[in-house]
């Protein structure tokens, strides 16, 4: 049996809204196993991003228990959460969030710098990641010179370069055309299968959903449906 890398129990997230509060997540419980390739799917405002932020330790739940890779992310100091993200998690964003003044190489190198890896190791690992994603030729370019598909590949390279156990990807294809969206999903699926990296997506993109093994439907902050499916295979 695979171990649970994610255990969420009775999570609530409330935001102050005017006089009162807005409840973005309601009594949400969810488990995830290692090497899953799963997605949070739901309409805008259903709480997908909020949930990913809590899992990533960027935000705290108002109530409930959140254990990610054995760490209690609901009750972590900002420093401990940062260290946890540094070592264990990868983030991929809808807008790529590349660091604008850095080259592609430096962007991908960044997490390794934070981990205080030696220069030689950084060189080698970054090169591998870039090659893996087919963007080695872009190493010296600045982000503003990249196309959308290239930019997201760089972001993926940056997320995987430190070999995290879990990658949180918030609508990674929303800014991509169909062809690029498929390419990106195939790449991530391959990573998932070859390296055993777990992925948790947030999406309302049909193209993304087709690749997922498990779809967790969110509506108004609650899990409406949690279903497994046979994903589209990479070779298709």
């Amino acid at each position: 049996m695979k171990e649970d890398i994610l255990v969420l129990k009775h999570i609530y997230k409330r935001f102050p809204l005017g006089e009162g509060e807005f409840t973005a997540l309601k009594d949400l419980s969810l488990n995830m196993q290692a090497a899953e390739f799963s997605g949070l799917v739901g309409p805008s405002g259903s709480g997908k991003t909020t949930l990913l932020n809590i899992i990533g330790g960027l935000d705290q739940p108002s109530e409930g228990e959140a254990i990610v890779l054995g760490q209690d992310v609901a009750n972590m100091s900002a420093k401990a959460a940062a260290n946890f993200r540094n070592l264990e998690l990868g983030f991929i964003f809808q807008q790529f969030n590349l660091l604008p003044v850095y080259t592609v190489f430096e962007n991908v190198e960044f997490p390794l710098l934070l981990q205080k890896k030696s220069k030689a190791e950084r060189q080698k690992t970054v090169k591998e990641a870039l090659e893996w994603l087919g963007i080695a030729h872009l190493a010296n370019k600045k982000p503003d010179k990249l196309s959308g598909g290239e930019g997201q590949r760089v972001a993926i390279a940056r997320a995987i370069v430190k070999r995290p156990k879990l990658i949180l990807a918030d609508e990674p294809t929303a800014n991509l055309d169909a062809a690029n969206a498929h390419n990106i999903m195939r790449l991530m699926r391959r990573l998932n299968q070859e390296l055993g990296t777990s992925f948790l997506f947030s999406t309302h993109d049909e193209k993304v959903m087709a690749y997922l093994e498990r779809i967790i439907h969110l509506r108004d902050g609650e899990i409406e449906k949690d279903e497994a499916q046979i994903p589209k295979t990479v070779s298709e």
Binding site: G56, L58, A78, K79, A81, A82, N83, F84, R85, N86, L87, L89, F91, F93, Q95, N97, L99, P100, F110, P111, L114, Q115, R158
Partner: peptide, 16 residues
């Protein structure tokens, strides 16, 4: 701001 958020999501602490 977005860059700051990115730094933090990549594993820098706010103090860093």
């Amino acid at each position: 701001q977005k860059e700051i958020g990115t730094y933090i999501s990549l594993g820098m602490s706010p103090k860093e």
